[in-house]
Design a protein around this nucleic acid. Sequence first.
DNA 1: CCAACATATGAACATCTGCTCATATGTTAG
DNA 2: CTAACATATGAGCAGATGTTCATATGTTGG
Lengths: 117, 117
Amino acid sequence: MVQEKRETENCCHGHMVEEMGAHMPSDECLYDVAELFKLFGDTTRMKILYALFESELCVCHMAQLLGLTQSAVSHQLRVLKAGRLVKPRREGKTVYYSLADDHVRKIIAQGMEHIME
Amino acid sequence: MVQEKRETENCCHGHMVEEMGAHMPSDECLYDVAELFKLFGDTTRMKILYALFESELCVCHMAQLLGLTQSAVSHQLRVLKAGRLVKPRREGKTVYYSLADDHVRKIIAQGMEHIME
DNA sequence: CCAACATATGAACATCTGCTCATATGTTAG
DNA sequence: CTAACATATGAGCAGATGTTCATATGTTGG
């Protein structure tokens, strides 16, 4: 995350530039949204999330279903859990994961819609 | 994109695994959605998109507004254009970019909502 | 406690990404 | 045409990311 480089170029003799800035969300907010979407921006994670659309699943079940290693799935579940997109439920040795809330479903659905244009 | 690794592990003696698969979108579809979200998954691109929320902007204007290099902005606009999230409009030497459609706005808004929980 | 199973985690590695710098392309004024 | 400006693009590089392999942790049955 290294940036903050200012240019002196200017095609429009920059008035109103600061005025525009007023409507922009804070850098932190923009960063958070980008981080959120980053979670959806990987095929493996998207597979996992979509697999959880209908019902909770345990790790090894997901691995089987998606043709992935248990380790790979577990690593990604860790990321998704940290991002509050999924939540675990332990039952004996088995850990079942499910979508954290309906927002996740909505966001994915919206993305799907855009793809199907 | 190297994967396709199958595990033999099985906590649930895998019946119904294939049945689940029936409800999954095609790999290509999942891939496309992930690619779409990947576009939103970067702070610089999110800044650019958000800056375009209200009105079209030329490249150097965006660079100024966001405190980024003209080159960096141009590179990202290329990516966003390829992903059909923004569209250019040439006017003399200047190229104005704007959001490609309202879906973009909706998707970002949905993301923002989730952040503000 | 021990063995077996389910999941989690750390290190190493190859790949992907996004930035910078230099330069090319496109456009208009003179 | 040429100079000046706006944008685009390519090469190179540093940092981020996702996978694998090996191993640790957690849980239950015997």
